[in-house]
Design a protein around this nucleic acid. Structure first.
Lengths: 217, 217, 217, 217
DNA sequence: GATGAATGAGAGTTCATTCAT
DNA sequence: GATGAATGAACTCTCATTCAT
């Protein structure tokens, strides 16, 4: 699963003709963009860290922004992955009995992904507001499509009386918000790689599910 | 309340000797930092937007970073404000009967603050990961102190059996996470000034409270 | 007359706010563009020759091309000058008895101009084919307008039976061609500042006039 | 005659071992140098237009300048061609009765040459001022030798009273100037491939001959 | 012979900052 | 206090050239 999720492997295996140098450039860029931000990282620094000439970067990526987009764009496909039709169908065909189970399955699935790609994710989150090329497809393809699929799932469980009867949009926002908020709080405030993440994630799941428990008072 | 919360007024009234030009510099810098990011905004651009000479900026702020810190630092005092001892005591002395009420009071209080200072808040969120001068006092003074105070509040309501008996840290994280996540989702994805924010915030509050409802199953 | 014709004075007096450094930049750029060509001259070289920092160039001229255009554009107004309506009217009102006299007046008038601005003229000639921004207004304003006025003059003398009855366009092309060809041959082949230019120019005039003598055989 | 004059054929047939790729490189380089200038054309652009790898250029020509010189040097031999001793002897042995006939013969002979090699000629004219390697042999071998031969021709007709008794140098300069000026005016100002060139050239010839008509007034 | 990845010097340009006015 | 010309370091990016394959 690690390999399947790892953005490096995705990036670098997809396209067969990837040089060793190109790999080192991507690696260095990811590290430095995550650490200092895209705008505050110079191509000179990247080249030095990657152990290549500065010109080499521009042989593979036409501009610095190109490099950023090459790193960050696959994120979207990956984020969206578990919501691709066949997967959701799979979910629906062998349905989790409870929303709780569905949620746990999704989060555990994404958890590995976030762990593996925490740096790329940081960059993604940081740069999205400043690049329309990133923002527009993100809203169009990720937010909208995931919302649609997710809405179906939510309705599925709402019809079974398992979760609260708020508008699906609000339910989704709440669910996502807690998850994303959790991840961002990690990266913005603590940037820690230690800590008992599993337990905290489990608590988070519990709170979400509790929050969505159908009202009976 | 608006005035009391507005960071500009805070910034600009505190220090009596604030010239018209200085005000325009701050205003321009806030707009541009929020729009394009700190690193991608040049002092030249700020000067032009503010209608002052580039040198004037450096007469008031020794470096560009100084300007950033001057804009963003008061945020911390402001964020922390409602949790300052006397205020919490006030809360506790005339206690809200339910955690729900406490939460709503806090959020309504902060809501105006976020609305008024959305741009400064954006900058704050964006730049915190890259500036230790910002990050350290934020964790030390904001996160830690607010957590401590908040923990007392949480315990207060836990003792009264109103909210779930998870570790206060988890309860706080959940509460904050939902709120912060909500705001960030606004700013990252939609950056919209329209929309029925009041209703969405109320839904969010409902979900938080529900999520923290003590288990009885 | 020298002052009136000198492009530097034109350039630098027109706009009152011209720094000493700016003057040195223009001077250095003209020398180096003429010597090595625009594309083969680096802004670094110009800065060094001018004794200023490289950044200073870009404070005054937004791009290197801007610098070129600033040097070369006034050429057009200057070239066109003697053909501006009032001047031609003046010529026609106190008409030169012979085309020969008109020609000599024009050439003597331009001679000083070419001498004084030989370097700018070199640059102009060299760069015109590669810059549409230069080429289009040159054809539109210089070639066309001068041709129109010149055609009137030619017809004037043709009607008086002084010059050959070829289409004015051909007469003009011939006259201009000889003059321009003369100057270019100087600059391309000899780039000499010595030599008995006056006599050679007089011979050139003689040959033009002779060539245009009405056929009587 | 076309083949005899075409510089490509000259260039490419001379040396038997000219690959297809080499041909494409020369072709591409000529087009781009003529269009954008030597200094403003990158070897990368040439390689792309030629459909070869950048390295291939340097396999055939050690430097970019080498490529230029290889394109442009044969021009000299070609320009000089009709004045090479045996040819002039041929001219003198079967002498044209009038200078007019000689001139027309030369120009018609050169006309085809210019048409066929207009691009190489453009490059030649453009680059001569900036490359001593080009300029010196041009003056030494082309200008001087052609002048000498031409002077003999001029004296030949002057002795027969057919052309004006100015110094041969002036006569030559005038003749050449009109022709070169004509071509340059085409390339600098109009770069047109349409238009009735034949007629215009004939007019030009007429004007030259007329200009050189011995004075009889 | 041909390739194209790699280079590092140097291109034009922008930058935060200084300082004389 | 305010200016804006000046700076030079640093930026992104391009260049002609090399060389292992």
């Amino acid at each position: 699963m690690s390999e399947e999720n790892n953005i490096f492997d995705y990036l670098l295996n997809e396209n067969e003709k990837v040089t060793e140098k190109q790999r080192r450039i991507i690696e260095a860029a990811v590290e430095m963009f995550a650490e200092n931000g895209y705008a505050a990282t110079s191509t000179n620094q990247i080249a030095k860290r990657a152990g290549v000439a500065e010109g080499t970067i521009f042989r593979h990526y036409q501009t610095k922004k190109d490099l950023l987009l090459n790193i960050v764009s696959p994120m979207m496909a990956k984020i969206i992955a578990p919501f691709v039709i066949k997967d959701v169908h799979k979910i629906m065909d062998t349905p989790y009995e409870r929303y709780e189970d569905f949620l746990r399955a999704i989060i555990l699935n994404r958890q590995e992904f976030f762990k593996t790609n925490i740096n790329v994710f940081k960059i993604f989150i940081q740069e999205i507001p400043f690049h329309p090329e990133l923002k527009e497809p993100f809203i169009e393809h990720v937010v909208k499509k995931v919302s649609e699929k997710f809405a179906l799932v939510v309705q599925h469980y709402q019809e079974r009386g398992q979760i609260i009867n708020l508008p699906p949009k609000a339910v989704i926002r709440f669910t996502m918000t807690v998850i994303i908020g959790y991840i961002i709080s990690q990266h913005v405030i603590f940037s820690e790689k230690d800590g008992n993440h599993e337990e905290e994630i489990e608590q988070t799941i519990q709170l979400i599910m509790h929050g969505l428990h159908p009202k009976e008072h």
